[in-house]
Design a protein around this nucleic acid. Structure first.
Lengths: 324, 324
DNA sequence: CTCGATATGCTCAAGATGAGCATAGGAGAT
DNA sequence: ATCTCCTATGCTCATCTTGAGCATATCGAG
């Protein structure tokens, strides 16, 4: 069986000040090339790492000083030429990506936190319809129109409508990856051009955009990995009590709501949210009050672990977030 | 970056006669050892396989003659010593497992179809509470009692109750993997003994069960992979129209219901199921009728693709299957 | 033509959801 | 002191969804 190299990628998420953040590093991938944002990554040491996630925790600690708590495997990326160094004799690189949720934000080394909506501005609907979608829509239309034949045009149209919620289709917050992949295929993200050039496919380049999208790109396929993470987390939120990994042990209901909103990218009805988490048994009051920030003091709550015994799939699967 | 070998595993699912089946092969893993059921697996060819799932499709075709349609990545298994050959100088083997859904059942080669509930008899609740659970419950109690300290005992009890729905906790059909892993840890499946012996940990063996569970074991960690697949499929059913991958293009509502029940492992209320899929826009009548099997003829339905435009997460997320 | 079997239509109580109104209890300004 | 602004918290209500059942339709077999 021929060999390949196994890499491990980490999407490390924290939420502070109502901003969901991910930990990034700066990397020069092409030696001497431009530095780009990248997800932290490291190798699996086949000899010493007993499991994949132990390997991950090991080098995350080494690189950033962070001790990961909640960790979950996301997806394994193995397309050829994910890393351009492969085409110059490097080994086939297969990367197993993980999602980690943390509370702390102090990191050491070259790591820094970034608002994940800088990478996906179209995903944040908390202030209503994101303005960037008005710029994307016509670009998507051109992509549809540029299809080589009517059948393919029809497919493109349907796909664009479904994933971007156009033409009356409802927006589905979980389709983060599908949206990114469509933009990539349509040549609307810089990675599309860059990858083609790096692979020597300088023919068939998408037209360089006069005015590039106001979104941050990433090295390699890391924005794809990040999109996978965001989509997965949005889904998981609804049926597993993962938000609490991102919150201090004690919090107010509004703090909880703000974190959920930050991840889900939508605003929620306050009273209904409260009803959901309280009558759903997800939290319990401590009797203590918040050293608040203006307004009537709020009660402090804690996560109620017993809910795991009471309900099969406890989460904040609430109004406007529900599945069907 | 040190090298490792990448394997690909396929959990290939079909449903016929209300039985969910998976494709297995017989393998002698220890040369000269006993033949065991295994999932089909093959290597990734780093040079020729452009993507992981292409590699998978390639060797599944080679090994079984099957052309896969719907394929979805499941999970990547990378613990050390998954394959005992590693401890004899073999390379670290990391396997990417895939779930595939097919309609056909004719296979060539050494492959054969097996009822997946032979591997997990406790997962089939279609005829009510599975009898095997009455045998498992006391064995789980012993495992809880055997905890080294009160704290660990409490944790074991809570875990057993949650995953097996004991002590008033509701049964959650999706926790297939958690149940299998608990049984493994508790030494209640033959793989637990076998793996310890193969790793030379012949001390600390779980006691050999006088009367082994009436369930089929698998080679390596393949039953774990299978459990992952079953759990994932049960979950996905509820919010993506994947059942239709397992059905002929045209089907009656009862056929559809039977397939869903076979996968979910529970019986559903017929009229409500019908209401759900019809008013939910998942299917549409063809006007034609079934060459039926006794009783009033049933209308033939087809999957209604337009539902993808109308609802964000269409699936059979119905009564008794819902998340919260 | 009656029975057995399945299909299909319809009802209804209970619960969940979506949206809003009203009141409580703090801090800082006047 | 009291006014104002702000957030917390309690409560209501119309509407939709769910869970469960009854009733009727339409076939084949005896």
């Amino acid at each position: 069986m021929p060999d390949a190299a196994i890499g491990l990628n980490a999407v490390i998420v924290a939420v502070t000040e109502e901003v969901p953040r991910i930990l990034t590093v700066r990397r020069e991938l092409a030696a001497g090339g431009p530095a780009e944002d990248a997800l932290p990554f490291g190798p699996l040491e086949p000899e010493t790492d007993r499991t994949l996630d132990r390997g991950l925790r090991r080098w995350v600690r080494e690189q950033t000083g962070l001790d990961l708590g909640y960790v979950e495997q996301l997806y394994t990326f193995g397309d050829r030429n994910r890393d351009p160094r492969e085409s110059h004799g490097g080994p086939r690189l297969v990367s197993v990506a993980y999602l980690a949720l943390v509370r702390e934000v102090s990191v050491s080394g070259e790591a820094r936190w970034r608002d994940w909506y800088e990478f996906f501005p179209w995903e944040d609907w908390r202030d209503g319809h994101p303005a960037i979608l008005d710029r994307l829509a016509p670009a998507l239309d051109s992509w549809v129109a540029a299809a080589p034949n009517p059948r393919s045009r029809q497919e493109r149209r349907e796909r664009a409508e479904i994933v971007f919620g156009l033409g009356g289709v409802a927006w589905d917050g979980e389709r983060v990856l599908e949206r990114y992949e469509l933009l990539y295929e349509a040549g609307l993200v810089p990675e599309a051009r860059r990858d083609r050039i790096e692979r020597g496919e300088a023919d068939r380049l998408p037209p360089e955009d006069a005015e590039p999208l106001p979104a941050r790109a990433m090295a390699l396929d890391h924005r794809r990995i990040l999109a996978t993470a965001l989509g997965r987390l949005r889904g998981k939120l609804k049926y597993r009590p993962v938000v609490f990994e991102l919150l201090p042990p004690t919090f107010t209901l509004l703090q909880l709501q703000r974190v959920v909103e930050a991840l889900a990218g939508v605003r929620l009805h306050k009273q209904n949210f409260r009803r959901l988490v309280e009558t759903g048994g997800l939290v319990e009051g401590t009797g203590r009050q918040d050293a608040q920030t203006g307004g009537r003091p709020a009660e402090l709550f804690v996560f109620r672990r017993e809910v795991l015994r009471e309900r099969p799939a406890p989460g904040v699967g609430l109004p406007g977030l529900r599945r069907p």
